[in-house]
């Protein structure tokens, strides 16, 4: 299983970024190989519009099955759901801690977007 975690830094010890669309970067963690890959999100960070959607595209194309983040807006939520990706919001701590909690079954899947979109 591949997991995307929004992260402020480039390692598993980095603190998570609470933002999804405007996350500093994504860490794509592969549960089987225990390896990870960094996907920078520079373009979306500065986008005035559509950041959530484009982030959803990145996640979808990376082949991830679930996303661990802080907040997720309605458009990104809709897009991720349509792509069959599970979303866990309200997650904090470091990237590694978040992954551990997911494995331990301590995270609850989000049923709807938890923040309102700013850009319309």
């Amino acid at each position: 299983m591949k997991i995307i975690v929004t992260s402020l830094g480039p390692s598993l010890d980095s603190p998570m970024d609470v933002r999804f669309g405007r996350a500093a970067r994504f860490i794509l963690f592969d549960d089987e190989s225990q390896g990870f890959q960094i996907i920078e999100n520079t373009q979306n960070l500065n986008a005035a519009q559509g950041a959530g959607l484009q982030a959803a595209e990145i996640v979808s194309r990376a082949g991830a099955e679930c996303v661990l983040t802080g907040h997720c807006g309605p458009k990104a939520f809709k897009a991720l759901t349509a792509a069959g990706i599970r979303i866990y919001t309200g997650v904090d701590g470091t990237v590694a801690e978040a992954i551990d909690r997911l494995r331990a079954g301590q995270l609850k899947q989000a049923e709807s977007a938890d923040s309102q979109g700013h850009a319309f």
Binding site: Q49, G50, L53, Q54, A56, E57, S60, R61, G63, K75, K78, A79, A82, A83, G84
Partner: peptide
Amino acid sequence: YHAIAGLDTGPL
């Protein structure tokens, strides 16, 4: 206009 999300399952 960011009106289409290009997911790997198809456009939304």
